[in-house]
Every structure is written in structure tokens, then in C-alpha cells.
Simulated assay, not measured.
Amino acid sequence: MTLIAAIEDQATDRAHRIGQHRTVSVHRLITEHTVEDRIDELLTSKRALASTVLTSADQALTQLTDQELAGLVFLGKSAC
């Protein structure tokens, strides 16, 4: 998980403190075609890829394409 994703998750978790009995809603406002929009796209794709890797453990890494593997570590706009 990336640092930004971890920070977002931590902020969301703080809203769900122990003993909270009310419903909590978290809203993320992202403007199209901005840095935040690009970060959101990266986080979404990396979370999905990490979920795939973590849920199927040993088999997942061998089934990823070269582009998917590069996407796990690449920070730019496009891995290939």
C-alpha cells in the first residue's frame, strides 16, 4: 500500500473510533484532470492489484503480466 493510501485509510479509521455508535460517512472530493484525480486512479489500480496478490498468495505473482508487475513499483504515468 502506498503512503497516500495509508494516510487516507488512517484518517477514515479515526472517524470510526472505538465506541462510535453513529453512522459515519467519509466523502472524498476529487476534481477531474488534477493531480488528485491521477493519484486516485493510481491508488485504485494499486489497491486492486495488491488485493489480487494478497488474496491468492503464491499463484498470483506468477500469473501477473510484465506490465502488472511493473505497475506495482512504477510511480510515473505509464509503466510500459
Rank of each mutant, 00 (worst) to 15 (best):
F74L: 13
M1Q: 14
Q20K: 08
T31S: 12
L64A: 03
T52I: 11
R22E: 07
A50K: 02
H27F: 13
A6L: 06
D37M: 01
G19M: 06
L69C: 09
E32F: 08
T23L: 13
A57I: 07
T55M: 02
F74M: 14
T34Y: 01
T23Q: 13
L49T: 00
R17V: 04
V35D: 10
A11N: 14
S56C: 08
E41W: 08
L49P: 01
A57D: 11
L3F: 10
A79T: 12
T44N: 02
I30M: 01
H21G: 09
T52E: 12
I18G: 11
T12Q: 15
V53L: 07
H16Q: 09
K77Y: 14
S56M: 11
R28L: 06
C80M: 15
D58F: 14
L61A: 10
L72R: 15
A48E: 04
I30N: 00
T44L: 08
L29M: 02
S25N: 01
L61T: 08
I18D: 07
H33S: 02
G19R: 04
Q67C: 13
G19I: 03
H16M: 06
T65D: 01
H33F: 05
C80P: 15
L49D: 00
S45N: 13
L64I: 06
G71I: 08
